[in-house]
Design a protein around this nucleic acid. Structure first.
Lengths: 142, 142
DNA sequence: ATTCTTGCAAATCATTTGCACTTTA
DNA sequence: TAAAGTGCAAATGATTTGCAAGAAT
């Protein structure tokens, strides 16, 4: 995706997902978030606006979206899983200082290593770790 | 690495790590394991031979090895972390059926995407998921 | 003797589950 | 109204922590 869906309600229905209020709000949140949020983040941001929302629902919804391939989990350094609107054409850089995850476009559609002959590859992730420019700068100031 | 260290005792000392019996056995285990073991696996395999061994020690030791960059965590589908003798020159394929993790040599030393200019990259991982040849074959038999 | 490591049990934290209640189609 | 989704609280499971006992230099 990353092309914003305007009619989330209809979009979910097309995916064979019942369009509950919570699901619509969570997908909407994911669409407008560039922060690769964790469950806690989603819950904290949405809970004030949807007081009845429970963590379990956020987990349920994300697991459903995962199954339907609307979102992807990013394998991270750290305990909590982070989620991303599904899009195979980018990698991720995780800053070990501020924990921000950046999208990294990987220009050429990369060809898989020859060693993968005979494997059925359903997804691939390129993941980088290190220090982001902002934190590098901050470190220099000290 | 992946070039086996014969003198683990001295090797650990060179890294500034006190060579306790448990640490030696755990590093030895990792060196001779091609299964990208989890903490449970390591514990289960080693405990019969070292009855006093505790899970906490396995965690402690792995965290120490991580700090010293002797091992790397593989970000996986699934709950438990999986460990690997540190070696930046390969990626991983995780079979979603049997949960085996395969080393995938990535021939060319890949150049990083241009989008990473200004970032300090300390590690990169290329991670694939799907179905391994053996499980594909098994599926066909049905 | 001092310092570091171990092992146990308890604590913590992310995620899942069971079940009664509510919403959606 | 039937079927599916939600919310709560309790359960689970991985990992961490505090601390007393043990090992290494």
């Amino acid at each position: 995706m990353r092309t914003l869906v305007k009619n989330i309600d209809g979009f979910l229905r097309d995916q064979g997902i019942k369009a509950s209020y919570q699901r619509i709000r969570i997908l909407d949140y994911l669409q407008n978030s560039y922060e690769h949020p964790s469950v806690s983040t989603i819950y904290q941001d949405l809970h004030p606006h949807i007081p009845s929302l429970s963590r379990a629902t956020v987990y349920n919804t994300l697991n459903l979206f995962l199954e339907k391939k609307l979102v992807a989990v990013i394998n991270t350094e750290g305990v909590e899983a982070r989620y991303d609107i599904a899009d195979p054409n980018h990698g991720h850089f995780q800053c070990l200082v501020c924990d921000t995850i950046f999208d990294i476009p990987t220009e050429q559609s990369r060809t898989f290593p020859a060693a993968l002959d005979g494997f059925q590859v359903t997804s691939s992730q390129w993941h980088f770790k290190g220090v982001c420019p902002k934190c590098l700068e901050a470190k220099k100031q000290q």
